[in-house]
């Protein structure tokens, strides 16, 4: 089989496995670590999609900062050990049934394939696709619609920082 296909399966199967382990672990710390692994595999997936810059951002920000924050809080609240059983009985069964139903719906009706707009990718766009230069040129180009959302994102981060401090600082 072609190397691209091999890489896809080599990444996809552990990704699904890690995600399943996140939701089935009794220990929140283990869940967090499996999620870190999942995100690193996802970064690998981004690399295979020629999105090099996004892969780097995924590792640095998502796996590296966000998940670290999760682990910090888990240890701060002393949740490192095994927890009680989660929503046992009816609630659990209902939740599993609902998500299995949703999965069956998605996969069965072909949400993931039918309706996909025809692609216009060329070898050229693929070659220059995901480098920091290409992303940067597109992001800061005033003729393209992504400069404004980028600036708004900075305000979103400001809001998040202020909000987090207001809620969590001991003496305000």
């Amino acid at each position: 089989m072609r190397p691209g296909v091999l890489i896809f399966w080599l990444l996809a199967v552990p990704m699904v496995a890690c995600a399943l382990l996140v939701i089935t672990s009794r220990n929140p710390l283990r869940s967090a670590l499996f999620l870190v692994a999942h995100m690193l595999l996802l970064a690998g997936m981004f690399l295979s999609l020629s999105a090099q810059y996004v892969a780097a951002v995924q590792v640095v920000v998502y796996a590296g900062a966000i998940m670290v924050l999760f682990v910090f809080v888990i240890m701060l609240l002393n949740l490192g050990g095994a927890q009680k059983m989660d929503a046992a009985g009816l609630g659990w069964a209902l939740g599993i049934a609902m998500s299995l139903g949703l999965a069956a719906l998605f996969v069965g009706t072909g949400v993931w394939k039918s309706g996909l707009h025809a692609g216009k990718a060329t070898a050229k766009t693929l070659a220059q696709g995901g480098t920091a230069q290409a992303v940067g040129f597109a992001l800061f180009d005033p003729e393209l619609p992504w400069l404004f959302p980028f600036e708004v994102a900075s305000i979103v981060l400001l809001m998040a920082a202020v909000g987090a401090i207001v809620l969590a600082k001991r003496k305000l």
């Binding site: 399943l20 939701i23 949740l79 989660d86 929503a87 939740g95 998500s99 998605f106």
Partner: peptide, 14 residues
């Protein structure tokens, strides 16, 4: 869908 399953069944908000 795995994510949805997790949200529906887990009890720890983190």
């Amino acid at each position: 869908c795995i994510g949805v399953a997790g949200v529906a069944t887990k009890r720890n908000p983190i």
